[in-house]
Every structure is written in C-alpha cells, then in structure tokens.
Design a protein around this nucleic acid. Structure first.
Lengths: 209, 209
DNA sequence: CACAAATTCGAACAGTGTTCAAGTTTGGAG
DNA sequence: CTCCAAACTTGAACACTGTTCGAATTTGTG
C-alpha cells in the first residue's frame, strides 16, 4: 500500500486550499460577490475550474470559508478595541463603534456578511450546519459588546437586547452608507452611529447606577 | 400608412405589461428573487422567453417595476396609518411603526427592497435613471414620518435625521427578523422597534416642549 | 521500480439572461 | 375588401454560469 497522507502532505494540501481562498478573496473584491465566477477564481489560482471541486464542495463552500475568516477578523477588531479602552462605559462605546467601523471601512467584508443574511449563494445554499457555524462566529464577534454592557452595569438579558439593537442600528446605517444611499439624506453614518451609541450608554449607566 | 397606435391599442399593450408583471410577482414570491428565472416568468405569463423583451428591456427592468409598485404600496400603508392616528406624537409613532410592520408582514416586499440596496440584479444593473426613480419612491414613502416629526415639534433637519435613524433601525431589525436570525438572541423584533420608536418620540417631544 | 492514492483536467450537462432574424397577427388607410 | 406597415411573438442560437464525471497525470512511499 502507498501509505496514508503524511503530515507534510496534509500541510501542502491545506496550503493549496488557502491559495484558492486567497484567489477567491481577490476575485470577490474585484468583481463583487455576485459577479465573481468560479472560473475566474480557478484561473486566478492557476487551476482548471473542475480542480476546485477536489478541495471544496461548491462555490458556496468557498464563500463560507472566506466569510468565516472575515468574521474572525471582525472578532479580533472588536476585541482589540475593548482591550484598549479604559473604564466600563468607554469599553461599551468602543466595542459598539468598533463593530460599526469595521464594516464601514471594509465594504468587502460587509458584502460577505450581507450574503450570509440573504441566505448565501445559490443554488445549494449553505447547509444548516455551516449556517450555524457562521451564526456562532458572528455571535462570538459581538460578545464583547454584551460583556462590556454587563460590566457597565446591565443585566445579562438587557445586555443582549442592547446587542440586538446595536447590531440592527449599525447594520441599517451601513446599508445606507455602503450603497451610497445615505446621501438621500443629509447625514453622516458615523455620526448617526455615535449618537445612537452615546445615547444608549448614557441611558444604561444612568439606569444602573 | 397604417396609422399610429390608437388609444385602445395602447391600453391593450399596457394590459399585457401588467400580466407579465403579475406573473413576475408570483414567481418572485414562489421561487425567491434570485431563484426566479426569466423563463419561469414567461411561461407563467403564457409567453415565450424572448417575448418579454418586447415589453421590457431586461429582467432587471421587470424587477424595477415590481419594486416600484411595492414602494407605492408602502407609501399608501404609511400614509393611511398617519391619517388614522390622533395627535402629533401618536402620528409619528404610527408612521414609524407602519413602515416597520409593512415589511415585517410582507417578506416578499422586503426582499424586493433589499435587492434595491444590493444594487439590483445582474448583469446590467438598473441604470442611474431608474435607480434615482426608486430612490424618490422610497423617500416619498418615508416622508410622512418626517412630516409627523415636524408636526410634533422637531426642526426639519432633526426630522430628517430621525427618518434616517428610524429607517436604519427598522431595516436592521427586519434583516434579523426576516432571516430568522433574531432567534440568535432572545428578542422580539416588533418589541425592539416599539421600544426604539417610543424612546425617540419621548425624547423629541420632551426636547421640543 | 511499481503501484496506489492524491490530484488535476477536458469535456460535457443543464441552467441562466439575452439577441436576432424570421415569422405571425392586427388594424386602419385606400 | 385588400393591402401593407406596424405591432407582436417565436425558435434557435450565443455566451455565460455552477457542477459532474471519467480519464489522465502527478506524487510519495513500500
């Protein structure tokens, strides 16, 4: 028998996966999520289209893995912001604004995230399992906001409601900002987010005094 | 010469357009926006695929017209809610909640709206002209909220900021609600929206006393 | 070297939106 | 009623998509 995969062999295979994912990230960024074709990704990675199917189940699977990386980066970003802020109220503020600004400054990642919320790419759709994985990754990235709220004096359930509200408000503003439709109104998305977060922090710290 | 289109002829032609649009609405609702194929729409309308191109420029144009109708319905809904409410503060509340609930209760329309914000369908994308048309239709539907805010004592610019915030908050909650991801958290989207609107109305009426 | 496992590819399939030239239907002018 | 142009419809094709499959190639070790 010709031996099972050696450790080294497995590392090489993993490396090839990341090469494909890098190519996918590039093509996603260049052509947009919907415009990105599997053939374009394959070409950029130096493969024939069919070769990708040895490393990934589908185009959707590639998308899911790129998104997972994006959510991990979001988590890092929020976590770092919290660790650098001084005081409970300031940490809460920082966490919420970090979430907003991550997506404000990285439109590509926002696109990836929206796709998750629209059910991903077709036709297969990401399976129940992968979907919940991504849910958890998003929840993990948002955790620091809830933690900071608790630290600032909120109950656990109030903290979670605040995360929902913050997520919703930020997402809506990002939608307006990212699509250029914020100009429908004479407003700055960043300022609106700061106003919202400031208001909530004041209310929370006042109520829990 | 064989004469220009008579009035009657034009009415018949318009009727055919609406038949296609009705078919499109059905297929959109049944197969989802992305899953809906032009061939399916044509078949449901009793046409060959190519025939649609006599009445519409593209699949995108069909989508845009269906969306326009949806936005008109939204405007009616919000307008009616305002006209039925008593008192400035109550009118403001009613307008904002009507906007939210229209989309909470009509997921299909929400889908249509999100497509507008994601740049519409590919490949052509709806042109600058059509895009601004739809922008105006959306702005018109939101106008009653701003009017009610002014009536309740806000300045025009504050009223518009409130529209931005309300739109953002509602959109974010709807995104969570519509994708079932609100269950990530233990919260009701409708309650969160009521809490937000109530808070804003109180703040506005208190500040403008 | 030899052989099996891991990997890659060309070709094909069913599907998409769209175009085009060729047809059919229609309704009013002569 | 006839005729003809305008309005309308269509089948076939095009370029593209994600995906599948069998055959070919590369790879690493016994």
């Amino acid at each position: 028998m010709a031996a099972r995969r050696s450790e080294r062999q497995q590392a090489v295979s993993e490396h090839k996966r990341t090469l494909i994912l890098d190519a996918a990230r590039d093509v996603f960024a260049q052509d947009g999520l919907e415009g990105a074709s599997l053939r374009a990704i394959a070409m950029r990675a130096g493969y024939a289209p069919a070769a990708l199917y040895f490393h990934f189940d589908s185009k959707e699977a590639i998308y899911a893995e790129v998104l997972r990386g994006s959510l991990a980066a979001l988590g890092d970003h929020v976590g770092r912001a919290v660790s650098e802020a001084a005081g409970p109220a300031e940490r809460l503020r920082a966490a919420a604004m970090a979430f907003f600004r991550f997506y404000a400054e990285n439109p590509g990642d926002l696109d990836l995230g929206f796709y998750l919320f629209r059910g991903g790419m077709k036709p297969k759709g990401l399976g129940r399992e992968r979907d919940e994985d991504l849910n958890k990754a998003l929840a993990a990235a948002l955790n620091p906001i809830a933690d900071a709220a608790v630290e600032a004096g909120a109950s656990r359930s109030d903290a979670e409601l605040l995360v929902v509200d913050t997520f919703a408000h930020a997402t809506g503003l990002l939608l307006l900002l990212h699509t250029g439709r914020i100009r429908m109104f004479d407003a700055s998305a960043d300022e609106r987010m700061e106003a919202y977060v400031g208001e909530r922090v004041v209310r929370l710290t006042a109520g829990a005094k």
